[in-house]
Amino acid sequence: MNAAPHILIVDDHAEIRDLLGRFLRQHGFRATCVPDGQAMRDSLTSAQVDLLVLDVMLPGESGLDLCRDVRRHSTTPIIMLTAMGEETDRIVGLEVGADDYVPKPFNARELLARIRAVLRRTVMPADAPGPRSSTLSFAGWRLDLVRRDLLSPDGVAVDLTSGEYDLLLAFAENPQTVLSRERLLELSHNKVFTAYDRSIDVQVSRLRRKLEDETHADPLIKTVRGIGYLLTVPVTRP
């Protein structure tokens, strides 16, 4: 039997930590609660963590700095807790590698739903049936739909957050087709943002930078002004 997913909560407010820890355990998760970045690093070193809930406002190192640090060596999913209405924090959080965000004050059930959604996108059984057991190829790149891995034309693995993977999959399954922001949100199962939220543009920009290829004069993901984006090359399924 597989162990319950392990959630690491990083928040300097003891009441929030205790509330979330109890709530997640009541719903079948393992939960570890810590107050700061050093305790977070100790937990990540000592145990397997399946998802990180990370507050932006922390003493010492901020949640954004810690998110950036985690992303240097790990693709563990990260959900940021941000102050209500702080769009800048949301955008910067996505730029440094967060997969999702929840504004404070938040409803514990909403956070639970976000955690489950991110885990569904990032945890794929190795024996999953159907087309997800194959590989999509485009311009020398290979996207493994089982391992959720991206390999460059040189065979180098490229780290993708769960949000970036879902976005790339949406493009790869609809190549050479202009996709509006609304359609990208729908295809990537991302209900967090509205079509007019700059966050979707940030995700596309991050993904495009990871797909930069000197052998192509034009970017693989092209902006169609006023409409959306498209993957400019054909995709095959070997």
Rank of each mutant, 00 (worst) to 15 (best):
F138H: 06
D100S: 10
D218G: 10
L150K: 11
D197F: 04
G226S: 04
Y196L: 15
A117L: 13
F171D: 05
Y101H: 14
V102L: 08
A108E: 13
V123W: 09
V192Y: 04
R181E: 05
A113R: 15
E164V: 03
Y196M: 08
L207P: 05
R181S: 08
D149Q: 15
T161C: 01
S133V: 00
D89M: 04
L211H: 01
R132K: 11
A170H: 05
A126T: 11
L168Q: 01
V224S: 03
V224D: 03
S134V: 04
D100L: 12
T215D: 13
V146K: 11
G226Y: 02
D149W: 07
D213T: 09
H216N: 08
R121C: 01
R147V: 02
L119C: 02
A217E: 13
T161V: 10
K222W: 03
R142C: 12
G93T: 06
P103S: 14
E173F: 04
I227R: 14
F106H: 05
R198F: 12
L187F: 14
T194A: 11
V118D: 06
E173W: 02
V204W: 06
V92N: 07
D149V: 00
L207M: 09
F171H: 10
D99P: 06
V178E: 04
V224L: 03
G85C: 05
T194N: 11
L211P: 11
Y196C: 09
S133N: 12
D144C: 05
L187A: 10
D159H: 13
V224W: 02
E95A: 14
Q203D: 13
V178S: 01
A128F: 05
A83M: 12
V118K: 08
A83G: 08
G97V: 04
H189W: 03
R90C: 03
A157G: 11
A126W: 01
P175C: 02
R148E: 04
L112V: 04
A172R: 01
I221Q: 09
P219I: 07
V146F: 00
T177P: 08
G140Q: 06
D99K: 07
K210Q: 09
L168F: 08
